[in-house]
Measured scan of single mutants.
Amino acid sequence: MDPFVVLVLCLSCLLLLSIWRQSSGRGKLPPGPTPLPVIGNILQIDIKDVSKSLTNLSKIYGPVFTLYFGLERMVVLHGYEVVKEALIDLGEEFSGRGHFPLAERANRGFGIVFSNGKRWKEIRRFSLMTLRNFGMGKRSIEDRVQEEARCLVEELRKTKASPCDPTFILGCAPCNVICSIIFQKRFDYKDQQFLNLMEKLNENIRIVSTPWIQICNNFPTIIDYFPGTHNKLLKNLAFMESDILEKVKEHQESMDINNPRDFIDCFLIKMEKEKQNQQSEFTIENLVITAADLLGAGTETTSTTLRYALLLLLKHPEVTAKVQEEIERVIGRNRSPCMQDRGHMPYTDAVVHEVQRYIDLIPTSLPHAVTCDVKFRNYLIPKGTTILTSLTSVLHDNKEFPNPEMFDPRHFLDEGGNFKKSNYFMPFSAGKRICVGEGLARMELFLFLTFILQNFNLKSLIDPKDLDTTPVVNGFASVPPFYQLCFIPV
């Protein structure tokens, strides 16, 4: 058959498939802009700032609406009420993970971030239990974070109060905490193996944040037939998995079943207990991918939040002064901060919360999916439909947070200066898919920041009023603009 005829037939089939998918069930789905064949609503979305586009569309179609990214149908949730109703009140029905062709290629359905069903539930339950087990290797997770915080302070001392970009050092600290939990080992910041790991993690975040990856996920045929950065992403992930597998083999040879040292040991012990169960989800494949998931999810998000926190503290020296006064009063100079201190430091706690609220790190979270046909607000959402959640619409709700575009710790303080919780605080998402490392991340943010401010004054290279804190939105995360500062020993 003539190649031209084959091409026309293929394009015609794709067009018909697109029209059929977009028209099927439209009477039951939430409203939304009319999609174009094949490309859907992509032309109506700013790929570099999806969150802003969703906010604009919500003003037209309401808090629940339908979009098509290519052939992929998505239902968008915008605003606290619908997000709570879906992710919390109907948590089980909305607990699936959205379709990610690239991740599915890399992870093969294993791990904790992109798995679904029984596998996801069992691996998540085990990971939560293990991360909360403060007795691994007779050292609590808090001990590990405190140790890394001391190392971080010593690295900052080496800058000798000269101007520096904190990106690298602030990236090393949370990565080392995860390494300590998974591998029972922290690395020197100049260790070549550690630097290679950091390089792969950072490069992957840069790649994932590009519009090209959005295109690959919406048109998965590209993955096999086109060159691009997605190939580098898959190569980096394969490198990390190979490295983790080597460490798993080392653990198998040296493990003491009665004295687990780290996450890998705990997983291997669980595998041993379930070795007679042919349906067990505790396999080497799941261990390797879960460890890679924890490394990827637990490094860049925390380091970016820390980097943004220091920029905001530079911009608002009056806030920094209040935090340091609270540190001096509650902790002093002669001991290290600990998590028990947080309950006695409402202002510092409010500042950490406000940093996370203000920066809105992951504006749309990772997409969910419905696990069955769901009736939601008089609409029928078919099983498997991807759910896109606007966390921006919750964290920047102007009824809950007056002047949401302003950095103001009073958003989390009552009139008496006591810490005030808010149900709208969802930087880790909400419901059954809430970030498994939430507790660890909150511990790291509090301890790293208090250790830094206990030991250093922060000095800006320019007038604080002239510092730009506008986030650089890159399609996946909101990151701070480049800046330098000086760490002046107190």
Rank of each mutant, 00 (worst) to 15 (best):
R21K: 13
P337H: 01
D143G: 09
V351Q: 01
F134P: 14
E281H: 11
K322T: 14
F446H: 04
L295I: 15
E444K: 05
R125P: 05
D143Q: 10
I434Y: 11
G343D: 15
S254N: 11
A292P: 00
C10Y: 05
I244G: 01
T299W: 10
K118I: 12
H353N: 06
F194D: 03
P101I: 07
K52R: 12
L294S: 00
L102A: 05
P402N: 14
F126P: 00
E400N: 06
H251N: 05
W120Y: 05
H396G: 06
E92G: 09
R342H: 11
R124D: 03
R157L: 13
Q193I: 11
C175A: 13
I327R: 00
C175Y: 06
L14V: 11
F401D: 00
R442I: 08
D243P: 05
V82E: 07
L57Y: 10
L366P: 04
T210A: 09
A103Y: 14
E354M: 02
K232P: 05
F428S: 01
D256M: 08
F65P: 02
D341N: 05
T66C: 09
R329L: 12
S390M: 07
K118Y: 13
T301P: 14
H230N: 05
S280E: 07
F412M: 03
T302L: 07
I327V: 10
A369W: 03
F419Q: 04
C338F: 06
I141E: 06
S23K: 14
K185D: 07
S303E: 04
K48W: 04
I434V: 14
V394K: 01
A86T: 07
S12L: 13
Q146G: 10
M339I: 10
V473R: 15
H396C: 08
E328M: 15
C372I: 07
F239W: 13
A106I: 12
E92Y: 08
R21V: 12
L90A: 14
I47S: 13
V370S: 09
L237G: 07
E318F: 09
P37G: 05
D46H: 11
N204K: 03
I462M: 13
P163C: 10
P163R: 08
N133Q: 12
H99V: 11
Y347I: 07
K118H: 09
E246G: 10
K420H: 15
L67V: 13
G437H: 02
F376V: 07
D408K: 04
S303K: 13
I257P: 14
D397Q: 03
L449S: 03
Q278H: 13
G135H: 12
A309Y: 01
N398C: 15
L201V: 11
H316W: 06
S390Y: 03
G171V: 06
L311Q: 04
H99G: 09
G416E: 15
S280I: 05
L313R: 01
F376C: 03
I331R: 01
L77Q: 00
L67R: 00
F451H: 15
N231P: 05
T301Q: 06
G96C: 07
Q356W: 14
F476K: 07
H396M: 13
I434L: 13
D256T: 07
I47H: 15
C172R: 15
V113C: 07
V64L: 07
K28Q: 12
R21Y: 10
L458E: 01
N423V: 12
V370C: 11
L461P: 13
F219W: 12
N474P: 08
V208F: 10
L361E: 02
N277I: 10
S115Q: 05
T364N: 15
C266T: 10
F401M: 02
D188N: 13
L245E: 10
S23N: 12
R26M: 09
D349I: 07
I169K: 03
P471L: 05
T389R: 01
C175T: 15
T304E: 10
A369T: 12
V8H: 04
P174M: 15
G27A: 14
L314D: 02
R21F: 10
E272C: 12
Y379H: 07
M74P: 00
Q356H: 08
I213P: 06
G343L: 14
L197V: 07
E438I: 06
Q193T: 10
G228V: 04
I362L: 15
S303R: 09
C372V: 12
E92F: 08
Y61K: 02
K249W: 09
P260G: 04
M339N: 11
I264L: 09
S336P: 11
D224Y: 08
V472A: 12
A369Q: 13
A103Q: 09
M406R: 13
E328W: 15
H411P: 00
M198I: 10
L391I: 08
I182W: 00
C172Y: 15
P317T: 10
V248S: 03
L234E: 05
S24I: 15
L413Q: 05
L391V: 04
K247Y: 12
T305G: 02
M136L: 14
K200S: 09
N474A: 11
S303L: 05
F401Y: 13
L245C: 05
N107S: 14
R124V: 00
G96W: 09
N259W: 06
R261Y: 02
K48E: 10
E85G: 07
I452R: 03
T55I: 08
N56C: 13
G296I: 15
L9A: 14
K28A: 11
F282M: 07
E93N: 13
C372K: 15
F428L: 02
Q252A: 11
F187H: 08
L314A: 05
R108G: 09
H353F: 05
L131N: 03
Q324L: 06
S127T: 15
S12M: 14
R108E: 06
V355K: 00
D191R: 04
L9M: 11
I327H: 00
E400H: 09
E405Y: 12
T283A: 05
T392I: 01
K420W: 05
P404I: 03
P37M: 02
T34R: 15
E241I: 08
G70E: 00
S24V: 11
E272T: 12
V323G: 01
K275V: 09
I213N: 08
N196Y: 13
D293R: 04
P163I: 13
N378A: 07
F451N: 13
Q192H: 15
P317F: 05
V473H: 15
F401E: 02
L391M: 07
E328G: 14
L54T: 02
V288N: 05
D243I: 15
E400W: 03
F168H: 15
H368W: 04
F263Y: 13
K322D: 05
T386F: 05
I181P: 00
I88Y: 06
I169V: 13
L311W: 06
F194S: 04
P317L: 03
G439Q: 13
K375A: 10
G439T: 14
F482V: 15
N116C: 07
D341H: 09
G96H: 10
G437D: 03
R132Y: 14
D89R: 05
S303F: 04
L447R: 03
W20T: 10
N378C: 05
P363R: 02
P33T: 00
K432Y: 10
I213A: 11
E142N: 05
M271C: 08
I213M: 13
S23M: 11
G117H: 08
R21A: 13
G62K: 00
S365N: 15
R186Q: 07
C164F: 12
V113L: 14
T66W: 01
M198D: 02
T385I: 02
R119A: 10
L245M: 14
P174R: 01
G416Q: 13
G332A: 02
P402M: 15
N418V: 09
N217L: 09
R442V: 10
I141M: 09
I88T: 06
T386G: 07
G117Y: 01
K421F: 11
T371H: 07
A103L: 14
G475E: 03
R357P: 01
I387G: 00
P31H: 07
S18P: 08
E253T: 14
Q193M: 13
K421P: 13
K275P: 09
T304R: 15
H411V: 01
T386I: 09
V323S: 06
V330A: 06
Q22L: 11
P166R: 01
R108P: 04
Q340V: 11
